[in-house]
């Protein structure tokens, strides 16, 4: 026996499923690249030597400058950045899911979902 599930639930669930599959798939590719010693943005030896430092210091020591935020993700020639793209996709999945179900929601929920989307987008576009 099954209960009637609203369409927005099914759409949201489907997007989470596909997004998770893609995100984890990219993480596996990145792991394989690590195992075959593909070049990484920061050498693995240096990562291990400095991973006890706070994040700001870690990037200062390893790159001579701070971390460049989202712009660092464009360097997809490095195995570690490919992994980061996988994590970024996983982080974007719930947001994409909310965007996809917007037309299916009633006005109150549309407003609430837009609020959640705006909160997340502010962080992505203009981080503190």
């Amino acid at each position: 026996m099954r209960v009637d599930i609203p369409e927005e639930y099914t759409i949201f669930g489907k997007i989470l499923k596909i997004g998770t599959f893609v995100g984890i798939g990219i993480l596996i590719v990145s792991l394989i690249l690590y195992l075959i010693n593909a070049p990484s943005y920061i050498s693995l030896e240096n990562v291990i030597k400095t991973w006890d430092l706070p994040v700001s210091k870690f990037w200062e020591v390893n790159t001579g400058k701070g971390y460049g935020g989202l712009s660092e993700l464009v360097n997809i020639q490095y195995s570690d950045n490919i992994g980061l793209i996988g994590v970024a996709i996983l982080s974007a999945v719930p947001l994409i899911g909310l965007l996809a179900i917007l037309p299916k929601l009633n006005l109150v929920y549309k407003i609430l979902a837009i609020l959640v989307i705006i909160e997340s987008l502010i962080v992505i576009i203009k981080p503190v």
Partner: peptide
């Protein structure tokens, strides 16, 4: 997902660990 964006943007997601 929202909180993780902060960690990604600040460079606090180390692929070697994650």
């Amino acid at each position: 997902s929202a909180a993780l964006w902060i960690y990604i943007i600040k460079g606090a997601v180390l692929p070697l660990i994650v």
